[in-house]
Amino acid sequence: MHIVIIDDDEVFQFTTKRLLEKSGVKEDFMKSFFSAEDALGYCQELPIKNSEKTVILLDINLPGMDGWAFLEEWRKLPKAHDSNVFLFMISSSINKEDRDRALAIEVIRDYYTKPLTLDAIKQLLTKVTDNA
């Protein structure tokens, strides 16, 4: 499993990595980006091997290209629609509008509100592994 964290918040990246580690994901398989542009470049090049799953954790509020803009570009790529790619939106917004808007986009698997707890991370990972 390969995990991409897209969030400009250093503390969030740190805590998420720790929680992922606690859930059994090795740090070597995590990649984090502070900007959506950089992440998009990386994701475009991302090789999708058979059976290897890619999890993208995307924040909404990003400087420059924000989460929504990233999605606009991302959904155009065939990769985005691959059954082995799992994109989750992780936002501090508890607004129903943001949540509804996110869940209406087909490439988004689910929406999580910050803070991500250990339980939430585990649930998220279960969704990925169960969806074999």
Binding site: D9, F12, T15, L19, S91, S92, S93, K114
Partner: peptide
């Protein structure tokens, strides 16, 4: 409120739990 305030609070919560 949603982002600039909630985000650091969420971080603090995560840190405290870690």
């Amino acid at each position: 409120v949603s982002h600039n305030l909630r985000a650091p609070v969420a971080n603090l919560m995560s840190l405290a739990h870690l």
